[in-house]
Each structure stands twice: as C-alpha cells, then as structure tokens.
C-alpha cells in the first residue's frame, strides 16, 4: 500500500524546552485529507497526540493548523494536493498547549469588548428588513472562527499592538452593517481596537477557508468609516456646522 510521510509537531511546554517534528508513515487512502492522516496517527500509533477536531466537514473551524508553512484547515486540505512530505504545526500565533493544540481563549476576551447588537431606538418589532440589506452582514456571519486569519495576520503574530485582528474586525463589521443596529462601532474599532495597525496586506483574505473577503468587504469599509469621522476635513467641518446650528 502506498504510504505518505507526515511530520507532526510534538511538544508539551510543561515538559519539553523545545518542540520537535516527529515523522510518521501513514497509508494513503483515496481522497484523504491531512486530518485523516493525523487522526490515523492519533488513533493507531500514538493516542496521546493532542489534536482538536470536531465536524470534519469544514463547518466548525476546530482543526486549524499550519500545513507546510501555510495556515489551513486540516479537514479541507487534501494530501494529494501537497508535496510528498507533509509538515503539520500548530497555529503559532497562539500560546501552545500541547502538540497541535493552542490556547485561543483570548479571542473570547476580545469578543467581550465588542459591544453586542443593540436595536435602533424606535425600531418596530418584529423587524422589517429588506433582503438587499442582509447580504453584506451575512457574508461575515459565515465565519467559522477557525482563527486562521488571526494566525496569518502579521500584526497579531509578529507585533505587539492593540489590534484585535481580522476575525474580530469582521465581527465588528457584521454588527455595524446590521441594518437594525443602533451603535456605530467604527470610532471604537479605529481607536481602542487598533484597526489603524492593519496595513491591508490581505493575507487574511487569502487564507479564509470560507472565502470571506475580509479586507475588501469589512476592513476597508470600516477604515473608510473611520475616515468619515476622523480624517475627512470637509465632513468634520460639516458636522461641526450642523452641530453648531442645531445648538442654536
């Protein structure tokens, strides 16, 4: 039977000082994905190999990893698309727990800081919403929280800033673009949540397994909204005049 070689990152930070790649041989099946190979190792060779997976259908976003240096979902990456030897590492932007498992809990802390949906004042309930108004926000609601975009984002991975990262930027955008939402989060996003640190290099958009246009449809529109209230001198003047006249 044909076999493939897979190098899996092994490390328990409590015991080891440095991680190492361990080589395993796995029999190839037709249509095999990387998760099948890693699970084969986990089930048949070393049951203590730490690994997260749930649905195996690219719906839950648990099995994120760096496969041959590129963040991908293990369940969606077919082995026949890769070179002979496969290297699997955990998503390194997050603190390692063990082997392929990292601690992604700070994402929930960030989400706590984003104001939740609050209906516009005086909106009649149940809401009447036009179908043309749901499509933009719904694109971001496809997010499966695999955090591959957070992993690939150099601002999160290599630099210590207050930027919340692409996943959370689209969360903010999905709330802001909700037609019945009564809060404007773009000042906060541009301020405390550090959107200015994004330099739109679009890696997040490249790795998104759901094909969400993170940069084009969420981050850039949010940046433009920040321009509206902060950098556009004419709009600022107009606002000041309007406020001045209404004060009289």
């Amino acid at each position: 039977m044909k076999e493939l070689t897979i190098n899996i990152f092994r490390m328990d930070p409590a015991v080891d000082n440095a991680g190492k790649y361990k080589k395993f041989n796995v029999p190839v099946q037709e249509g095999m994905v990387v998760l099948d190979a890693v699970r084969y190792v986990q089930e048949n060779i070393d049951p203590s190999l730490a690994l997260r997976w749930n649905c195996k259908a690219a719906r839950c976003g648990s099995c994120s990893a760096e496969i041959n240096g590129r963040p991908r979902l293990m369940c969606k990456t077919r082995v026949d698309m890769l070179e002979e030897e496969i290297t699997v590492s955990p998503i390194r932007a997050y603190p390692l727990i063990k082997d392929l498992v990292t601690d992604v809990s700070n994402n929930y802390e960030i989400e706590r800081r984003i104001p939740a949906f609050r209906p516009k004042k005086g909106a009649a309930q149940p809401f009447l919403i036009n179908q043309i108004d749901v499509t933009r926000s719904q694109e971001f609601r496809r997010c499966i929280e695999c955090f591959l975009c957070q992993d690939v984002c150099h601002v999160i991975r290599e630099h210590n800033t207050n930027y919340i990262g692409p996943r959370h930027a689209i969360k903010v955008a999905s709330l802001d673009m909700h037609p019945m939402d009564g809060i404007d989060r773009s000042p906060m996003l541009n301020g405390d949540l550090g959107l200015g640190f994004c330099n739109i290099t679009k890696c997040c958009q490249e790795v998104c397994p759901e094909g969400i246009k993170i940069t084009d449809n969420a981050i850039i529109p949010e940046k433009e909204r920040a321009v509206d209230y902060k950098y556009d001198p004419i709009l600022r003047l107009a606002r000041r005049l309007r406020r001045g006249s209404s004060a009289k």
């Binding site: 760096e66 240096g69 590129r70 963040p71 390194r92 690939v152 150099h154 601002v155 290599e158 630099h159 800033t161 930027y163 200015g196 640190f197 994004c198 330099n199 290099t201 890696c203 490249e206 790795v207």
Partner: peptide, 23 residues
C-alpha cells in the same frame, strides 16, 4: 516587508522589527 508573503517561513517580518502600520 510587513509581511513580504503570507507563507509562515518566507514572510520576512519578525517580532524584533518595530511596526506602526497605518497609525
């Protein structure tokens, strides 16, 4: 080079470099 490419090993960005983005 912030970052040069998305690939983890070839991106040319690093933790030792200072960064300010579009701020």
């Amino acid at each position: 080079n912030h970052p040069n490419a998305c690939g983890i090993n070839i991106r040319g960005d690093s933790m030792t470099r200072d960064y300010s983005g579009e701020t």
